[in-house]
Design a protein around this nucleic acid. Structure first.
Length: 203
DNA sequence: GTTCTAGAAC
DNA sequence: GTTCTAGAAC
């Protein structure tokens, strides 16, 4: 009944650096196939594809992905700056089409899905797909890194630094309205509150 | 990333 | 009793 001294392995999936056993779970490749899905595609050019997020967390939620394979923020270097600026420009053009909405353009510090993707998301967060504290904090805490900050880091340091422990902490922060900073105990309470900050829907 | 659901919270 | 969250998914 002895089992090699009861050595227990703590969760050791930090950033996949030494994780040869489970490199990428199948679902983490979902964006790659979404990029090919005509039903989701908004537009594309020689460098990037723009798709609708399959589970939008706001009234408007798009993803801009490079056609070149780039796994995540850690894969980025100074050579990618023109590409990232192009992605931001395409995103800003999209946002400018809906002047009644406020948008943010940015990246998740630790994305679940492979292939770098720029979120273009309206700040109403009025969507049935927005359900969990993780969802909320991933778009409204420091977990969401503005595109301009990613580009700035690349320009200044040549790489993007993401402190895994710190970013995991951001996801667990207490629920707080992103507009008026009021605290909430539950997601349903927060979701009903933020409707009063959202612009009126135009049929 | 989502779905499912046990059990915590109310 | 119902609502809500959080962890497993072979």
């Amino acid at each position: 009944m002895s089992n090699s001294g009861g050595l227990k392995r703590k969760a050791d999936n930090h950033d996949g650096k030494h994780d040869k056993k489970r490199p990428v779970p199948p679902w983490a490749l979902g964006l790659k196939s979404s990029m090919e899905d005509p039903a989701l595609r908004v537009e594309d050019d020689d460098k990037v594809v723009i798709i609708k997020d399959k589970y939008p967390k706001a009234r408007q939620h798009y993803l801009i992905l490079p056609k070149e394979d780039i796994c995540n923020l850690k894969s980025l270097n100074a050579e990618h700056i023109p590409l990232l600026k192009h992605m931001q420009k395409k995103g800003q053009e999209l946002a400018d089409k809906s002047p009644q909405c406020q948008f943010r353009l940015g990246y998740h510090g630790i994305p679940s899905m492979s292939q770098v993707h720029l979120h273009v998301i309206s700040q109403d967060f009025d969507s049935p797909c927005l359900k969990t504290k993780k969802h909320w904090n991933s778009f409204t805490s420091e977990y969401f890194i503005d595109s301009s900050d990613v580009i700035k880091q690349l320009e200044e340091k040549g790489s993007v630094k993401v402190d895994t422990g710190k970013f995991e902490g951001y996801l667990k922060q207490a629920l707080k309205c992103h507009v008026c900073k009021k605290d909430f105990k539950t997601m349903p309470a927060l979701k009903s509150h933020i409707l009063q900050h959202a612009p009126k829907k135009t049929s």
